[in-house]
Amino acid sequence: MQHKQTEQRFANDLNIVSLISVGKHPQSGRERRAEQDGRAVELGMSLNAENLTVLHAGDPQQNALRSYAGMGLNSIRVLEMDPAADAIAPLSSYLKQHSPDIVLAGVRAESGESSGMVPYQLAEQLGWPLVSRIADIISVEGGVAEILQALPRGQRRALKVRLPFVASVDNAAQEARQSAFGPASRAALDLQSTQSTTDVIRDEWSEAPARKRPKRLKKVKATTAAERFKAATAKAQSDGGKVMKNEPAAEQAQAIFDLLLEEGVLR
């Protein structure tokens, strides 16, 4: 796929940080450029290649960082720490100190805990809004960004968010451009030492490959070919749910409780 050559769509004064992690190839388990983090860098480069900081907290020797650099980065900033340590503290202190306008990250890491909590925790620590699963940033004007959020089945939701904010980048965003060996070899790694705390809880865990979760069978009640096609291709849509906006909090909580009981989550 040809990537859009839309570099620098905005004024140069926009400060963007793209957070990158070490990815893991699903077939070989080999370290690589993470899919979503690559998209976060791509989005950052297309917004403002000049003032983009690509930031990693972990081991600067990690080869996968080079494959991000190969996208044409002059440097990657690395907060040097034990890759197993918790990255939240060093990242948030870095971001507090540099106060960028936009922080982009993948939805979840491809290795490690892969909890998807990093953008949320950073947003909480910084006190900034978090926009989850964005597909694109359309414009930034007067301190307000117009964002497209990715929804299932190719749907998009247009949002307006005041700067600064943290956003997680969905798979629907522009694919990361090709990584080239020359620039990858030449990029500078800009090291900063940090105080990181060992993740005591994680130390006690043992890792094993995930088992495939059983899928709930879909009941197909289709009578026409078109319906069967839709049933086969459509992602399960949350039908049967209801939107409760104006009800009292107790009623809303009861509804959630009832659903959890019904689904067998609570017994």
């Binding site: 190969g70 090709q178 990584s179 080239a180 060996f181 020359g182």
Partner: peptide, 11 residues
């Protein structure tokens, strides 16, 4: 390929 990263199509 190695400098521009512009191998076309599925490259």
């Amino acid at each position: 390929t190695m400098e521009k990263g512009s191998t076309p199509n599925k490259g």
